[in-house]
Design a protein around this nucleic acid. Structure first.
Lengths: 199, 199
DNA sequence: ACAGAATGGGACAACAGTGTCCTATTATTA
DNA sequence: TAATAATAGGACACTGTTGTCCCATTCTGT
């Protein structure tokens, strides 16, 4: 990070491009850089002035995601309160990030069979940042709150996806935004069976 | 369907291409037709002899999916037994279809903002074929088996995704294939909380 | 008002993917 | 074996995207 202080307009333009990229890419993963520039209200040449090539833009987006996720995890204070309370905070935080996170699921270079070096590094950092979540699940396991028949890996995996599904449903208008968190958490915690239903 | 009986080799080549397409597209959604042809062990020109353009190939894949899904739903006899039993049969059937279904989630033209006419038609048919599932959920609601706080739409949505997530986990080696169905169904039905855990 | 920074708007070559077409070979079937 | 079907392999033009470059214009801070 040798960059000194950026001019106001430069950092604003940079942000506009990044935000536009999230919007465009989460709608259509194969969108061209021209589409991104148009969404940002910027000439394509300007975009290239900030991000030399497509990979660099995507990397910048990923880096953004990483800090957002880390902040969310940190703000969730997963080691405090009951595991369920902690999980609720985490879900709310993730949900609020919305497309900022979920565009990753749609970015081709992140699902490639043999990923780029930087992509690999990103996933390593992402996984590392998820340590507190693992700890939370294990705590829940020890305290008998989470089903021990479900591995921590599986629980984390399904948790991520459920938040994603909820967000997608809201995005499609199939689920009211305000009821989404409750729906998501009920599903994650209790599944779809009615409370009194004989197991 | 004016085609008379296809020669043996023709129908075999056709199948090889379709199967290869599923493999290749589910790995890398943006794969080229050349990749598909290579995977099928066929010249690209031959592929074009069977499917004039990319859209036609994708459409053929989708049609394949449709009959497979319809057959699975039909074989599941969703109106028989308890709702939970029916749901278990359905999950097993879906899971067995594996990538045959899930490649759809990765096909760009199926997630486009304003879909093609044929794609729209496909989704309509797919939704129509899902009527028995809706009926099943509603039956479960009436009988007090499924939580009425969760809409049928949401339950169906999350059900699909959960099967997908389970399949993906197996594909990545994160979940043993044999324990996948049980894990999926436990998660769908009861969520992640331990049975005795105070609600 | 002035100098430097930032941008718009294009031109350009390079490239990958697509769809079409043709010819030489190989399989298949009668 | 002869006739027909099917394929391989390549050439080809066309398209959309990409990354680079350049110049004129606009914006910004002093």
């Amino acid at each position: 990070m040798t960059d000194t202080v950026e001019s106001g307009s430069r950092s604003r333009t940079r942000r506009a491009i990044l935000d536009a990229a999230v919007v465009v890419f989460s709608q259509r993963r194969t969108a061209s850089l021209g589409d991104v520039a148009a969404e940002a209200g910027v000439a394509r040449s300007t975009l290239h002035r900030y991000f030399a090539d497509r990979a660099e833009l995507v990397h910048a987006l990923a880096a953004d995601v990483l800090v957002a996720v880390e902040k969310t995890i940190d703000d969730s204070a997963l080691d405090q309160g009951t595991p369920r309370e902690a999980l609720h905070r985490l879900a709310a935080g993730y949900f609020e990030l919305g497309p900022r996170i979920f565009f990753l699921y749609n970015e081709p270079s992140f699902n490639a069979p043999e990923p780029d070096e930087r992509v690999k590094g990103f996933f390593q950092k992402l996984e590392a940042s998820g340590k507190p979540i693992e700890a939370l699940i294990e705590r829940g396991h020890r305290e008998g709150v989470f089903a021990t028949s479900l591995s921590a890996d599986w629980i984390i995996r399904m948790f991520w996806w459920m938040v994603y599904i909820g967000w997608e449903a809201v995005d499609e208008g199939a689920l009211p935004r305000l009821s989404a968190p409750a729906t998501i958490l009920q599903t994650i915690e209790h599944g779809i069976l009615a409370p009194g239903s004989s197991s």
